[in-house]
Design a binder for these strands. Structure first.
Lengths: 351, 351
DNA sequence: TTGAAAGCGCTAACAA
DNA sequence: TTGTTAGCGCTTTCAA
């Protein structure tokens, strides 16, 4: 025997107080006598009252909704590919659970960044949902069209994986340090000719990672010329092309730092095709640490991004912002991990 | 300080008509003169008007929200495990995109099925969101506590992977046929002692798959005694235990049908530990076809579930239902695929 | 074919 | 510390 819908009115009647008092109680506002608070809470429990999100949004200023914006093409491609990604899963793990803790919901939304109508798409989502905050995933946080729009609309937002100053909360790992750590890992293993495959230029972190590699090479007193750098775009194909040229020629590299797992996997294939042993002849280390790193042969050593932690932090900051863009956009830097697996090893004595 | 928003009022003023007329236009209702319709649409386009979901829910009966209910523990475990799942991703792929097509949103929600408060958790989500429909994922569709609750609350729901008659739309693949196909695949390869590892009893499909195996064995004129059946619960550990006993003893099996990938992977490990070649000494076939099947060594032959298609169909049916539980709960049966990889092969001559 | 009025369930601003 | 009064932006009667 279930009621049709229990509203704040029913609770007020049951507790013998006004609507406003009930509202205060469910919003944990001060200025409610303990005795009254108790009565209202009892009524809420008895009737199984849960406030309607839609009504709260209508009356007040908050919607209790956080919007997570992801790149449509890339996400769908990931879902349809055989490889499996866990970017989305980790986002949900971190973001959804944090939202749930605070009575918020996270709505996952795909937007087509490349189309001329990014602004329209995002504006529409905002008009429709009136989210209290927006989580921007790479490379959206680096897209001024988007960040400017959100600033103008005064919707608080968090940029995941975007370290720039700018508006909105910046939540990222230290990409340069991570690339340096990856490079250093190889240096420690005795490598001196360490190639680097960049990610797409669209991502600011692509440049930052390259800088990290340069820094580590310099610190180790190694040459870091352009002959060791290849431009990739995160795709398998670009990784393969990059690896091809790095391992051929008069001065082949003995190790490669790839800016993501797909490109590292491509390097692995190239090595196999050429009869190069991994890590015997070629060490490979990558960024992201998606599931494929664990199942490739050999498993890939990789830099793991704290995606869940970043999403969680983003949600937290946005919820704290209570719908108002923060004046002081703080930057959170979360720790990365270097997961050593079997694709990296000591350089050959005859290297 | 409220955020500037274009409302139906502005559109009405711009087009010189009443609110109702605008409402009719955006809801594609009849009885609007073409000329007026055009004027309103022009105003909508000019002002960039997008109706507010919250307001639509408040005024009318629909919320434009579809709730996807997933098992909390299992989902979080999948996210946290190293393996990577793609159940959630495929759900989003199918469900979200279909919802988006119709101006709906899909909200992904985790519920703790095992706790005594399932009813409270689900009732709360419904009270809060007033979804127009709910997608139940396994094993929720087989849980009478949940299906009865939703029936009582008159919220339309779709059961994914649940074939029973009952209330709500049933959307599933033919589990028995799939298990039979998997078994048959092995029979064709010359196997006669084919073991079967079941899934958790909590899932109705566990029983159905077992029946499919029995059917195929019988059809092939093979013995299908209980000595060939082991009870698993979808975990790696249970799969390992099951495989252990199937490959040992006086009459070891030459092939195993495992009810999910994790258990198949466990069987693979058991084979390796015992020095059994796969598929030379032991063929393994599994259900689900998550990413791990593609990266294990050898890659696993598996039955792929049409998860995205099922989620898409579920969303479609619920949207069509327009918030009213359908009288005739139709059942959709979607096709599965057998993906042949390297873990199954001909039985040894001396087998 | 159109429009006017009455809410939906809640919160913000103000009174008491 | 509590209650009262307006709306929020839409859809749903119902009337014209």
């Amino acid at each position: 025997m279930r009621r049709q819908t229990v509203t704040i009115k029913h609770v007020a009647a049951e507790a013998g107080v006004s609507l406003q008092t009930v509202s205060r109680v469910i919003n944990k506002e001060p200025h409610v006598r303990p005795a009254v608070l108790e009565r209202v809470e009892a009524a809420v429990a008895k009737l199984g009252y849960v406030p309607s999100l839609a009504a709260r949004r209508m009356g007040g200023s908050r919607s209790y909704l956080i919007l997570a914006l992801n790149d449509r093409d890339r996400t769908i491609e990931g879902w349809q590919s055989d490889g499996g990604t866990d970017w989305v899963d980790q986002m949900l793990l971190g973001g959804m659970l944090k939202c749930a803790e605070h009575g918020y919901r996270m709505i996952f939304e795909l937007v087509d960044t490349h189309a001329a109508h990014v602004e329209r798409e995002i504006s529409a989502a905002i008009s429709s949902l009136h989210p209290d905050g927006i989580i921007l995933t790479p490379p959206h946080g680096d897209n001024p069209v988007i960040t400017d729009l959100l600033t103008r609309l005064r919707v608080p937002f968090a940029r995941i994986g975007s370290a720039g100053e700018g508006a909105g909360f910046s939540i990222a790992m230290d990409e340069a340090a991570a690339a340096a750590a990856a490079t250093d890992h190889l240096v420690q293993l005795g490598h001196s000719r360490i190639g680097f495959v960049t990610g797409s230029d669209e991502y600011a972190l692509s440049v930052t990672r390259l800088e990290g590699w340069r820094r580590a090479m310099a610190a180790a007193g190694l040459a870091a010329g352009d002959d060791l750098v290849r431009h990739g775009d995160f795709t398998f194909r670009s990784g393969a092309a990059a690896a091809e040229t790095l391992v051929s020629g008069p001065q082949p590299v003995t190790a490669i730092v790839a800016s993501n797992d797909q490109m590292a996997l491509a390097a692995l294939h190239v090595a196999q095709d050429r009869g190069l042993a991994v890590p015997g002849d070629l060490s490979i280390i990558s960024f992201d640490d998606t599931p494929i790193t664990r199942f490739s042969v050999p498993p890939l050593t990789a830099i793991a991004q704290p995606i869940a932690a970043m999403a969680s932090r983003a949600a937290e900051l946005l919820i704290e912002a209570r719908g108002q863009p923060a004046e002081t956009a703080e930057a959170s830097v979360l720790p990365f991990r270097l997961v050593a697996r079997a694709s990296t090893g000591p350089v050959r004595a005859d290297g």
